[in-house]
Every structure is written in structure tokens, then in C-alpha cells.
């Protein structure tokens, strides 16, 4: 397999058992490194899992901020503002007069529509406010207190994460893993041009994943307004709840690993353009690939645990 491109396919391929992959110091070290990474993410994800499973059943609610004391509020009612309608000032005035909330707080409720939440009402107050808002052309409905021990997926009143977007993003990362392994496969066959091409594809896909995550962070941190059940400040920042702390730490450290992987891949890609690798010498591509796949595996688990469950 000395010629650079398009090697002849051997007629007979030995079975996997006949040709086990050789061990090199680099491969031993990269697998050891991955083992340490497994333990690092165990620390983060294990903490997430026990917090997810063990938080008290009243930690999150549709009407009050995370970790509010809810044990005496079982009869509390609220109003979910679906749409503000034409008369924003009137709506704000109605909410303020019904609840006595300050200007800033009311503005946050309006900004969070279609999931703005007005809390601090009893059954009668909630009915009256719903009716008043309806008269002003706003879309509103009364809601009773619903608690959960963790923000539930697909519940916009407690969970700000977009599953649709992230599902697509997950598949982008999986595709980058596939192009990575195709790059390794290409260089193993000595096809250097093909290897560079797939490395470039991996880089682009990995960069796209990172870009989407940066966009998601931006939306969460300042781009959008969220109801009180997600954050008392209207923005989803690390200090607003334990869920936010866990989410930003876990995905943030995964994102840092992806960024490190992208830098590594860029270096490997440049190396491949300079012709550093061949069918006999492709260690760097393989090790970068192993790391990249590991980051992918972590994301597959993380996506399921953090977003879907």
C-alpha cells in the first residue's frame, strides 16, 4: 500500500481476530487519558444524576422561582400570560393592581410571554385577573400550582432548553464523528487527499456544533426572557437554580472539550495538508479521532440525561 491514492483492494480481508490492532505508547496513553476523562465526567454527571433524582419534589414549580418554600402554597394560583395583545400598558397596569408587583417585575412578566407567569394570587384573584386581561385583548389563563423535583422536558414554564434544536445539534456531532472515522479509514488506506477532506468536514461539523451551542448559551443567558419558574431574573444564568448550575457546568465542560478537540483537529488537518501522515504513520489522526469520538459519546449520554430526562 505504498501508492498515495486509490490502492488496490485486497481480494481477501483477514478477519478482525487475525489482525488485532497494534498497541503503541501513544494509543495506551490516549486510552488512559480517556479513562481519566471518564472519571472526570463521572464526577460532574454523577452529581447531576443524584441532584436530578434526589431534589425535593417541590424544588421547581410553574408559579414560583426555583427553591422557593412552597410547602404552604398548595392553594396558590397564578395566571399564565399567553399573549400581551394590543394594550401592553393596560395589561401591565392590570397585573400591577392585582398583585402589587413593581414595575420591573411586571415588565419581566410581559417580556416572558407567551409564557409570562403572574404569581401570588388566590383562586378568586386569578379568576378576576384572567377576566380583566381577557377584556384588554390579552391571552391569559389561570393556573394552579404544579411542582416537580426537576424542570421537566417540554415544559416551557420550568425548562428553558430547546430539545428540537439540540437534537439536530446532537446529530451534527454524531456526523462529525462519522467523518472523523472516515478520515482515519482514508489515511489507513493511504488516501491522503480523502483524509484531509474528511478532516475538514469534521472540523466544520465540530465548529457548527460549537456555534449552535454558543447560540444556545446566548439565548439562555441574555437573548430571551423566561418565566419565574425558570428564573427569578428572567434570564437563565448559573446562579438561578441548581438545574442551571448543573446545566452550565456539564455542558460548559463538554463544550470546552469540543473546543479543545476542534483546535486539535485543526492542527491535525494542517498536518495532513503538509503530508505528515501516511498509511504507515497515522497515529496523530487516530488519537485525535479517539478523543473526538469520546467527546461525542459523552454528548450522547449528556444529551439524554440533561435534555431528555
Amino acid at each position: 500500500m505504498t501508492s498515495a491514492d486509490a490502492p488496490p483492494h485486497p481480494a481477501h480481508r483477514p478477519s478482525a481476530d487475525a489482525a488485532p490492532a497494534p498497541a503503541t505508547p501513544g494509543k495506551v496513553a490516549i486510552w488512559l487519558f480517556l479513562a481519566t476523562e471518564i472519571m472526570f465526567f463521572t464526577g460532574l454527571l454523577g452529581s447531576y444524576i443524584v441532584f436530578r433524582a434526589g431534589s425535593p419534589p417541590t424544588s421547581y414549580s410553574n408559579l414560583y422561582a426555583p427553591a422557593a418554600q412552597l410547602d404552604r402554597l398548595k392553594d396558590a394560583r397564578g395566571v399564565v400570560l399567553g399573549a400581551v395583545g394590543p394594550d401592553a400598558d393596560g395589561v401591565a397596569g392590570a397585573i400591577a393592581s392585582a398583585t402589587g408587583k413593581g414595575e420591573a417585575e411586571v415588565a419581566r412578566i410581559l417580556a416572558a410571554a407567551p409564557h409570562g407567569v403572574v404569581n401570588g394570587l388566590d383562586e378568586k384573584g386569578a379568576g378576576e385577573l384572567t377576566a380583566a386581561l381577557g377584556k384588554l385583548g390579552a391571552k391569559a389563563e389561570a393556573a394552579s400550582l404544579r411542582t416537580s423535583n426537576w424542570p421537566r422536558p417540554y415544559d416551557p414554564l420550568t425548562n428553558p432548553l430547546s430539545i428540537d434544536l439540540t437534537t439536530v445539534n446532537t446529530f451534527i456531532l454524531i456526523c462529525s464523528s462519522a467523518t472523523m472515522v472516515l478520515a482515519v479509514s482514508a489515511i489507513q488506506q493511504g488516501r491522503k487527499g480523502r483524509c484531509s477532506l474528511f478532516l475538514l468536514a469534521t472540523l466544520v461539523l465540530g465548529g457548527t456544533f460549537l456555534g449552535v451551542q454558543v447560540f444556545e448559551y446566548h439565548e439562555l443567558l441574555e437573548g430571551r426572557s423566561y418565566p419565574i419558574g425558570i428564573s427569578p431574573t428572567g434570564h437563565f444564568t448559573p446562579e438561578v437554580s441548581l438545574f442551571a448550575s448543573c446545566f452550565f457546568t456539564v455542558t460548559g465542560f463538554h463544550g470546552l472539550h469540543v473546543a479543545a478537540g476542534v483546535v486539535t483537529l485543526a492542527i491535525v488537518f494542517l498536518g495532513s495538508l503538509l503530508g505528515r501522515f501516511s498509511a504507515q504513520d497515522f497515529g496523530a489522526v487516530e488519537y485525535a479521532g479517539l478523543y473526538w469520538h469520546f467527546v461525542d459519546v459523552v454528548w450522547i449520554l449528556l444529551f439524554t440525561i440533561v435534555y431528555l430526562i
Binding site: 464526577g43 460532574l44 452550565f248
Partner: peptide
């Protein structure tokens, strides 16, 4: 390392671990 990182974030980034 993960525990130290979480404590560091608790101290600097306002997380609540």
C-alpha cells in the same frame, strides 16, 4: 478535579452545587 471545579464555580460563577 471535578469536585474542585464545582467548588471553584460555586465561588466564582455563583453556581449552587
Amino acid at each position: 478535579t471535578s469536585a474542585l471545579v464545582m467548588q471553584l464555580l460555586d465561588r466564582t460563577a455563583g453556581t449552587n452545587f
